[in-house]
Amino acid sequence: MSDPAMSLQEGPPAEQTEPAKDANRSLWGDAWYELKRNPIFWVASTMAIFVILLAVFPFLWTNADPSTCRLANSREKPSADHWFGYTFQGCDMWAKVVYGASKSLAVAALATTFTTIIGITMGTLAGFFPGWVDTIISRVTDIFFGLPFLLGAVVFLQLFQIRNVWTITTVLTLLGWTTLTRIMRGSVLSTKNKDYVDAARALGATNGHIVFKHILPNAIAPVFVLSTIALGGYIGAEATLTFLGVGFQQPNTTWGLLIQEGQPYALQGDPHLLVIPCAFVVVTVLAFILLGDALRDALDPRNR
């Protein structure tokens, strides 16, 4: 009835005026092209890399040993020699903060890795196999979702006698995998209905081929965005749990412990004991949130 060249539906004018991008640039290629032009991405990744370097190579940043403390220096204010002053126990605050990064970051990185793997696997299974697989996974997700994050974490952690990187990671993973699973499931469901998946199926592709070649590469983007943001969230969560007394315990050095230790003295007139570790937590969380936001904008510029 009408010209095939004209059968395209009319879209909003903004879409037709998009620049003539390279036709063969992929979703990720496009995203990288957008990311490179986003100054927030560069600021956020610099912050994130700085924190990661603190965590992995603390000895590069300070000569002071975080465990040699002299009570004579207790609560000394920041000075030209020691920008961050001394802690209550007379330890160098900068050294404490530098060495405190590793445990927080290790927990966050491990919890993010595990939740992402579980989320992608469970979400893909639920999205790809409707019926009983989906029903079971979705109901289990609902049940885990019914337990508020912080409350659940407090219950489980307070029962552990030893709380280390692994126990805290396990609890954060157990309570954190649901969100990613739901996102992945939704993403797979919408990708599954795309024409190219039908086309692959019509050509006789196996389920495995369809999932790994067609669905995963196209459905995984929202999960990566959320994982990046979640990494910041886990740093905050670990610090919160430690502050509440169910996370790391003395004599470990972590940011949460520094804040817990500094709080009463801040009220008595030594705010630096509190503000400095707080600033490190906030800057780190912020870095990953901004990174996730930049990634989201790059993957879907429309939703800025």
């Binding site: 010209d3 095939p4 060249a5 037709q16």
Partner: peptide
């Protein structure tokens, strides 16, 4: 060209004359 690209019963079997190319982007 638009008129020629309409399929017609009396021209069955002949090749449809589609318009070659795409409209130019409105920015260029």
């Amino acid at each position: 060209a638009l008129l020629e690209s309409i399929p017609r019963v009396d021209m069955k079997g002949q090749e449809l004359a589609a318009i070659k190319g795409l409209p130019p982007p409105l920015t260029q």
